[in-house]
């Protein structure tokens, strides 16, 4: 007998989950996946989409908090996130279609733990963690510890994800996410990469790079990060966010961006399937990484990169 209940608060949801119910938010992974025969619909389901307070975006005490029920569409229209976590907007902007973005939630995207999820790489680069509440209380888990395999998390089945939290980036930071796109809507990540950089005194002071759909779990690429940190963006007058081509190709940073791309390609362990060959995926890992880093640096240096950066960086 399958059952469906709707939770009115977090406690009720957690109680239902402790009784074996699976939470459903937008249902765009769970229900659609079941229809496709990916996995049967769970016997017992608890609807969490009407729990008050589980959506919404706030910035306080240097922490950006995004409620689990926040839809991709809501992320896209948030001015706070636009300035703080542009890379997340790049991701939410290209999730599925208008309908998917209106219904799909950040919580569902992150907890579904697909290696092709779009918000994963930018959130990882923003050092995000999730707030999990179970019968025993609330804990915070970093994303690198959360995702343990394709479709697998370290959250226990009775833990509800309440929010994603990430540190408010300082001045001079920028992030971006770029995905290879065969068409403009309804794509799935075949290759993607995110970058987060901090620029101070004309040099990269911090860098985080992560790749999507290229490894069993979305992961950071230390080699790409090392290639970038400490690199100078070139002389002051050539640092022009408006025209990144000038400084990315002719200076020290251009070589570093190239090396970051190569490191991402080396870190990738792609498969060959109907979507792309492993060889093409590897080559594209370098390309999207270079583009993500370039877009992040452009934003960090005050340049304008329209959302989604995937479109912006098409050549």
């Amino acid at each position: 007998m399958s059952t469906y209940v709707e939770a009115r608060d977090v406690a009720a949801a957690v109680a239902a989950m402790a009784d074996g119910a699976r939470p459903v938010a937008g249902g765009t992974d769970l229900v659609v996946g079941a229809r496709h025969g990916k996995a049967p619909l769970p016997e017992s389901i608890v609807g969490i989409h009407r729990i008050p307070g589980l959506d919404g975006i706030s910035v306080a005490d240097g922490v950006v908090r995004i409620g689990a029920l926040t839809s991709h569409a809501a992320i896209l229209s948030s001015p706070e996130l636009a300035s703080a976590t542009a890379g997340l907007l790049d991701a939410s902007a290209i999730v599925g279609s208008h309908a998917t973005r209106a219904n799909g939630t950040l919580g569902g995207n992150v907890m579904n733990a697909s290696p092709a999820m779009d918000t994963g790489a930018p959130l990882l680069c923003h050092d995000a963690s999730v707030v999990l509440t179970g019968p025993g209380g609330t804990r915070r888990v970093g994303l690198a510890e959360l995702w343990t395999g394709p479709g697998k998390t370290s959250a226990s089945p009775d833990e509800l994800m309440e929010a994603v939290e990430l540190p408010l980036p300082p001045e001079g930071a920028g992030s971006a996410y770029v995905r290879l796109q065969y068409r403009r809507q309804m794509e799935i990540a075949v290759v993607g990469a995110a970058a987060y950089v901090e620029v101070s005194d004309g040099a990269v002071s911090a860098a985080r790079v992560a790749i999507t759909a290229l490894t069993p779990v979305i992961c950071r690429v230390p080699g790409s990060e090392e290639a970038l940190v400490g690199r100078r963006l070139g002389s002051n007058d050539s640092v022009s966010g408006e025209n990144p081509a000038v400084w990315t190709q002719t200076t020290e940073i251009g070589d570093a961006i190239h090396a970051a791309g190569q490191a991402a390609a080396a870190a990738a362990t792609p498969i060959s399937d109907v979507r792309a060959s492993a060889g093409y995926r590897t080559a594209m890992a370098a390309v999207v990484t270079r583009r993500a880093v370039t877009a992040a640096l452009t934003r960090a240096t005050g340049g304008s990169v329209t959302v989604p950066a995937s479109d912006w960086s098409e050549r």
Binding site: L180, Q181, Y182, M284, V287, E314, R315
Partner: peptide, 8 residues
């Protein structure tokens, strides 16, 4: 328009 780096 052809994106020469990706073939898109």
């Amino acid at each position: 328009k052809v994106d020469r780096e990706t073939g898109v």
